[in-house]
């Protein structure tokens, strides 16, 4: 699959897809989207990059081992639930803050932290499977 066309377009396509996946992740609370589907889009972006430029390039690009990314996501999601402990509400309750950043009200919540955790779990898990399969192809 190492054609010139794919290889030259893959970096742009990948960055666009990763950007789109973050967009899907953030709109997820009230509209279709969220951590899981966003994570899938990001993982397929990395898979395209891997097909075009090789697994080693992907591993360099994401820097951390995919499994470690998953683990951090899992920890983040669990911690998002534990935040409820300090608000005296049951585990995994949604907690919201509304800071004003540059004059705009931004709704931040523990739900978002949880969703980002899910995003990382999905990216890491799918990515490690995809990279593993692609590496396995060669031997």
């Amino acid at each position: 699959m190492r054609t010139v066309i794919l290889r030259s377009i893959a970096p742009f396509l990948t960055s666009l897809m990763v950007l789109f996946s973050i967009f899907v992740l953030l709109r997820g609370h009230n509209e279709p989207g969220g951590g899981f589907i966003g994570g899938l889009i990001a993982a397929s972006a990395l898979a395209i990059y891997g097909i075009a430029c090789g697994v080693a390039a992907v591993r360099r690009a994401i820097y951390f081992h995919p499994i470690a990314i998953s683990a951090v996501g899992l920890l983040m999601s669990a911690l998002a639930g534990v935040l409820s402990l300090f608000a005296e509400v049951p585990f995994m309750s949604g907690l919201w803050v509304y800071p004003h950043l540059f004059g705009v009200e931004v709704a931040l919540s523990s739900v978002l932290v949880f969703d980002v955790g899910v995003y990382l779990v999905v990216v890491g898990a799918i990515c490690s499977i995809a990279l593993g399969l692609e590496e396995g192809d060669r031997d």
Binding site: A68, A71, V72, L74, L75, A78, L79
Partner: peptide, 10 residues
């Protein structure tokens, strides 16, 4: 268990 499991994975 989930949190320590995640830490141990890293």
């Amino acid at each position: 268990c989930i949190m320590t499991g995640a830490v141990l994975v890293t």
